[in-house]
Design a protein around this nucleic acid. Structure first.
Length: 874
RNA sequence: GCCGGGAUGGCGGAAUCGGUAGACGCAGCGGACUCAAAAUCCGCCGCCGCAAGGUGUGUGGGUUCGAGUCCCACUCCCGGCACCA
């Protein structure tokens, strides 16, 4: 051991020890409690970013902590290796996505290793490897056999210039990111997975996930969106035929207030009406432009046009005009809605805009209905009762819906129905860098599944996308095949799967990564479900919901025994950084890394804009946002690791804020963490020279019943108090205060002057240091490993028992209480720890501040909070 | 727009069940050591005030002996919105 703290040497020593002893290989062992600790696997974007460091440090702290508490821990790692950024990189650099991806994986793996994570690398997987995605294909075919996977049309963003499908991310203000051309909506066929079949179970099982944050369960429940309503039809006669226009509503109680209906631009009624109405045809064409994103649809201007077609109100027979509305979606519900402008905000604004009638049918006592403004109470179905509704007048929401539902059913025009917001999962992507969908198109036999013994359908790895569609469409060697049914020449499907498929079951594959014959095996039963899953809050809905769905499908196929894959979930807050961008000449968007620009700030230091260092021209400031490859605002932790070492980087990430909170990145503050590491090291150095010799080889625990003088007892009490706090914080996953507790322990040990005070103090000090090193070892494992060994605490800190606070060390004779008068702090009170309420009251009333403030008057009331404070109400 | 979350000194954050607001750090200021600097160590450090004291947890109300914490109304910021991952 040397006096100076040199992180590179310390970390090298610890890491080679772990490697030589294969310390983190996880072996199934039914005699020990298992702990499967999983961090969300990274997309290999190029370099680790701070979000990764945060995520994987949290996972590593938990893994190492549980290991010391006696669990058989599995902490694997892999790569979410398919996806769009690889295609973008390919376009920019003319490198095949496969090559780019594997280079990134190699670099990022080196970075992960340098951070010293306790990962079982023997289980590493990458979703772009055929031995992994073979099982995506295999399970897809099983779903197809059972009708869980099926084909229907989907609406996509279409770039008319590049002649390609765009991801939502590639649409900026309704235009293609590369071409700047207005995006069109286009309907194309695709495959869907029937997640809605599991809606009821996905919703109900949220109650069985107490280890998940409440907010995530709420978000999922709202996303699944179970609602009770009525599906009913408006009859109409057109071209001599009697037809029905179906709608769904959760507000059937307002049915007598319907003054018009609205249908999607793609609705058959709209198509029919446009046949001899060029103006309407033009409007429908206009609706084809713009984005398919819900956020855009919700915020865009609501427009409409009458079709001239009238339908009949199902209860009154009254004529109701049908409009085409750009806000009605064909793919959601029936593609048609009833409009009750008096009691629906969107309908209200639409009616005002186009001068349509508004008919009040709900009244609330004491509230005045007005046509001038939308008011909140209109929408509250728990208040009010029907008016202007004939035989339904006076009925409240539930009763009105019941009566109206019954009347519709009697006429065969509708019934009560449960509706879900959740839609089936569209998994087809018109992209190259993904898992091929294992289907063959035969002229004679139609679409034919690839037989199991021909799996996997291997993706050729040498394509270079150029932005003009899927290059697989031009790969004859991939396309050409024979029909498995009839043997005739046939064509392969070129659509690939959504990358959410890859990430929906990787956690199960880690348990049996080398099984070439099956997707999962008995080892999966040992490790699953994941005991602790850790990942960004941005995955709170989609990834987690898809994984839950996939698990239930695998369970129903008899592949696994669990129905929920993740027992406990920690959603870490995002690491944010400033975002700078600029419009390109073609109307696209270009992002700048924060170190490529010089920010302009106002007097308060707020960033207003910036200039690019490269060309000195202005750049727009977009505020802070999540660190991402596409926005180019990630911070590479490499510099941090090289300058300070992995332990400091890890410690700082944990210390900076609690895991669930968002973290706005800033370099300052790392110095403090490095200073702490240096102080820890030099205290270890001093211990080795001054303190340890006083112990004469004795164990570093204070013997039970050992009498200590007051300063030694105080030091020991402080160490054990911080330990008790830290253990509590570990249990509630608040690691920033664990780091604080470690700092407080070191402060206490340094203050105590242990060497100068003889063997008793040395003993307390040795015990304190042994607690500190064990407490800290999950966070800064390298330095703790070396110090533990060099200072003679034991051979290997990984197998040391987790420290527990001792009652004997915590007892106090006297405690200090806060003294308040009328709720304001006026002093303090020292009392015996065992003092009764009466004794405390008397001591408080007799105190100097009490007599000063009471001036002889009797106190109205004295509030005593045991162990905390006394409040005298004057 | 809808769903979920957040806001505490110059900065990151602490405060466990409604009980001392600002723990632990960063930055800053003052001092020691040094020829000097770096490193290290000691002290000070919410705001107003000479002080006594007052005031203070995004804003405005409320409940309570006592509110960062509970209730009502709002503002701003972040995440998600189904093809970024």
């Amino acid at each position: 051991m040397q006096e100076k703290y040199v992180p590179a040497e310390v970390e090298q020593q610890a890491q080679s020890h772990w490697e030589q002893t294969d310390a983190f290989r996880a072996v199934e062992d039914p005699t020990r409690p298992k702990y499967y600790c999983l961090s969300m696997f990274p997309y290999p974007s190029g370099k680790l970013h701070m979000g990764h460091v945060r995520n994987y440090t949290i996972g590593d702290v938990l893994s190492r902590h549980h290991r010391m508490r006696g669990y058989n821990v599995l902490q694997p790692m892999g790569w979410d290796a398919f996806g769009l950024p690889a295609e973008n990189a390919a376009m920019a650099n003319a490198v095949p996505p496969a090559r780019w991806t594997w280079d990134n994986i190699a670099y990022m793996k080196k970075q992960l290793r340098s951070l010293g994570f306790a990962i079982d690398w023997s289980r590493e997987l990458a979703t772009c490897r055929p031995d992994y995605y073979k099982w995506n294909q295999w399970l897809f075919l099983r779903m197809l056999e059972r009708g869980i996977a099926y084909r229907k049309t989907q609406v996509v963003n279409w770039d008319p210039v590049d002649q390609t499908v765009l991801a939502n991310e590639q649409v900026i203000d309704g235009r293609g990111w590369r071409t700047g051309a207005p995006v069109e909506k286009r309907e194309i066929p695709g495959y869907y997975l029937g997640i809605t079949r599991y809606a009821e179970e996905l919703l109900a099982d949220l109650d069985q996930l107490p280890g998940w944050p409440e907010r995530v369960r709420t978000m999922q429940a709202n996303w699944i969106g179970k609602s009770y309503g009525v599906r009913f039809a408006f009859p109409y006669e057109l071209d001599g035929k009697r037809e029905l226009m179906w709608v769904f509503t959760t507000r059937a109680d307002t049915i007598m207030g319907v003054t018009f209906c609205a249908v999607a631009a793609e609705h058959p009624l709209a198509t029919r009406a446009a046949r001899d109405n060029p103006e309407l045809a033009a409007f429908i064409d206009e609706c084809r432009h713009g984005s398919v994103m819900e956020a855009d649809l919700a915020t865009m201007e609501k427009k409409g046009m009458p079709t001239g077609i009238f339908v009949e109100h199902p209860l009154t027979g009254e004529k109701v005009e049908v409009w085409v509305g750009n806000y009605v979606l064909m793919g959601y519900g029936e593609g048609a809605v009833m409009a009750v402008p008096a009691h629906d905000e969107r309908d209200f604004h639409f009616a005002q805009k186009y001068g349509l009638p508004i008919r009040q049918v709900i009244a609330v006592d004491g509230e005045t209905f007005s046509l001038d403004a939308w008011q909140e109470w209109y929408a509250d179905k728990q208040r009010g009762a029907c008016v202007n509704s004939g035989r339904y007048d006076g009925l409240a929401y539930e009763a009105a819906v019941d009566a109206i539902g019954a009347d519709l059913r009697a006429r065969d025009l509708g019934d009560r129905q449960v509706q879900w917001r959740l839609r089936d999962w569209g998994v087809s992507r018109q992209r190259y860098w993904g898992c091929p969908i294992p289907l063959i198109h035969c002229e004679r036999c139609g679409t034919v599944p690839v037989p199991d013994d021909q799996l996997p359908v291997v993706l050729p790895e040498d394509c270079v996308p150029d932005g003009t569609g899927n290059p697989l469409n031009r790969r004859e060697d991939f396309l050409a095949c024979t029909c498995p049914k009839c043997g005739a020449p046939a064509r392969r499907e070129t659509d690939t799967m959504d990358t959410f498929v890859d990430s929906s079951w990787y956690y199960a594959r880690y348990c049996a990564p080398d099984n070439a014959a099956a997707m999962v095996d008995a080892r999966t039963d040992y490790w699953m479900p994941v005991d602790q899953y850790i990942g960004g809050i941005e995955h709170a809905i989609l990834h987690l919901l898809y994984s839950r769905f996939w698990s239930k499908v695998m369970r129903d196929l008899g592949l696994v025994s669990y129905g929920e894959p993740f027992s406990r979930l920690l959603t870490q807050g995002m690491v944010l950084n400033h975002i700078f961008s600029r419009r390109t000449e073609r109307g696209g968007i270009q992002y700048f890394a924060p170190d490529e620009v010089e920010p302009n700030r106002d007097e308060a230091g707020q960033i207003l804009g910036a200039t690019a260092r490269a060309d000195g021209a202005t750049v727009d400031y977009q505020g802070v946002g999540t660190m991402s490859k596409s926005k180019r605002n990630g911070v590479d932790p490499q510099a941090l690791i090289e300058q300070y070492g992995a332990d400091t980087a890890r410690f700082f990430m944990m210390f900076a804020s609690p895991p669930e909170q968002t973290l706005e990145w800033s370099d300052s503050g790392v110095d403090g963490s490095f200073r702490f590491m240096k102080r820890l090291w030099s205290f270890g150095w001093r211990y080795a020279r001054e303190i340890r010799p006083l112990l004469a080889g004795a164990a570093p625990q204070v013997p039970v019943g050992q009498r200590l003088d007051a300063p030694a007892a105080a030091l020991r009490r402080e160490i054990h108090t911080h330990l008790r706090q830290a253990n509590y914080d570990f249990q509630r996953l608040q690691f920033n205060t664990v780091a604080s507790a470690a700092m407080k322990m070191l402060n206490a040990l340094e203050r105590a002057q242990p060497g100068a005070d003889g063997p008793t103090h040395a003993r307390v000090c040795a015990e304190g240091l042994s607690i500190l090193l064990r407490l800290l070892s999950p966070v800064t494992p390298h330095a703790c490993h070396v110090l533990w060994q060099e200072l003679g605490f034991g051979a290997n800190i990984l197998t040391a028992p987790w420290p527990q606070p001792l009652e004997e060390a915590l007892v106090q004779d006297e405690i200090e209480l806060v003294l308040q008068i009328n709720g304001k702090l006026r002093g303090s009170l020292r009392v015996a720890a065992a003092a009764s309420r009466e004794q405390i009251e008397q001591a408080a009333l007799a105190s100097e501040p009490a007599s000063r403030h009471l001036e002889g008057r009797p106190a109205k009331k004295v509030v005593v909070v045991p162990g905390r404070l006394v409040n005298i109400v004057a």
